[in-house]
Simulated scan of single mutants.
Amino acid sequence: MSLKYVTPAERFKRYLPKDYVELVDYGPFGKSQDEAGPGNMGQFKELMEEHPMCSGCWMAYYIRLIFASLPCPEETVTLGTAGCGRLAISQAAVPFIYGNYGDQNAMASGLSRAFRLRFPDKHKDVITIAGDGGTMDIGFSMTMHSWIRGEKFTTIMLDNEVYGNTGGQESGMSPKGAVLKMAPEGKKFEKMPATALAKAAGCVYIVKMSPTNIKKAAKVIRRAIFVAREVGPTFIHAYTSCNIEYSIPTEEVFADARAQEKDRFQFEEYMTDEAKAVIERVEAEEKATLRAKKGKIAEEVS
């Protein structure tokens, strides 16, 4: 779990699988976002290329975007639990820990603390990525306690508003009235106020969104990770539709995401003053680095 760890000795490369060698040579490890980020996906070896998700799965698209947005993938660990998302997350070239029915935030709490003790001079990013069931239903108590304790890691909820992996049961995040295979009469209560709960529990950076804009979604992911490194718990509530359980034709998945962007998932961003200070500093540093790089390239060309 470091750049040195993933880079093989030059003479040993010939014996390694081609995919691994290409990932080291042409992947995002040790590179900046302008070299290997969401803006140029398809032009570098991505951390996640194949997955067993359903055709047209919006969740799979967003997970791919998460991995393309990581500030430092070689120093990152992801954690998840039972659900559709782990089928794709586990295929990425980033260490993944599979939790037991919603305990991902409990594990992340211990892991992030251990990393800070073992590597006090390094940023080791810990990110939990789980569905609405794993985060807000089955894992609710562990999610809330990690936030209340102020644990320094990022929680990303893949909200497809249903238990898509186990047959279509309603979840706490399903909208009121939703008719599903195992809720034939429609859900009887409102969707849980996840972002309000996160704010009340002490999250210092919170976003709710439907990730239709790649640059905007990537910026949110990076902000959440940067803030979690220094300040405290961060939370992203992302709409990732289940086109199977909600009968959304594959060609209409993006249109559905755009529609939800104007409805239940209108963009909301909350940050504390301390979180804002971190974001402004880091983004200013990134802009300065990019300007210097472009200036150097211009000098070499001229």
Rank of each mutant, 00 (worst) to 15 (best):
F96D: 07
R64Y: 11
I244T: 14
G102I: 00
F96R: 06
V162L: 00
K31W: 06
A288Y: 05
G167L: 07
D137F: 06
D121I: 00
L70Q: 05
T7A: 02
E268Y: 12
D125M: 08
V220P: 01
A82M: 13
A288W: 08
E74C: 01
V21G: 08
K181Q: 12
E185D: 14
A93M: 12
P233K: 01
Q104M: 11
M1Q: 07
V24F: 01
T81Y: 02
A259P: 08
D159Q: 09
I127M: 09
K152T: 10
E230V: 07
T272E: 08
K199D: 10
T195C: 15
G30A: 00
H145P: 06
G139C: 02
Q260G: 03
G232F: 04
D137T: 10
Q33F: 12
E35T: 09
A92P: 00
G134F: 00
I148Y: 12
E280L: 11
G42K: 10
I221V: 13
Y98C: 06
A255M: 12
Y205W: 11
V278T: 03
E10L: 09
S174N: 05
E280V: 11
E74D: 06
G164N: 07
R116Q: 11
I156H: 04
I148T: 13
I89R: 05
S146V: 04
N100A: 13
H123N: 14
T155L: 03
M209K: 05
E35W: 09
V77S: 03
N213S: 13
M1Y: 06
Y98T: 01
Q33E: 14
H51N: 14
A196T: 14
K31I: 07
V94T: 05
D121S: 10
Y163R: 00
M144T: 10
R291E: 15
P233M: 04
D103S: 09
K287D: 13
A88Y: 06
T272G: 07
M136Q: 10
H123A: 14
T272R: 02
G56I: 07
P184L: 01
G168K: 02
A277P: 04
T7H: 02
K152E: 02
E286N: 12
V179G: 07
K45L: 02
D103A: 00
D132R: 01
T78G: 00
E274M: 03
A288T: 11
L197W: 05
R11K: 15
Y15Q: 12
Y62N: 04
K188G: 06
M107C: 09
Q260C: 10
T76C: 06
N105E: 12
V24N: 03
A93Q: 10
D25C: 05
Y62A: 08
A194Y: 04
I138M: 10
S174Y: 08
E283V: 03
T76G: 08
G186M: 00
T212S: 13
F44T: 06
E261H: 13
G172R: 00
I221S: 02
R258K: 15
K4C: 07
L23Q: 04
C203L: 04
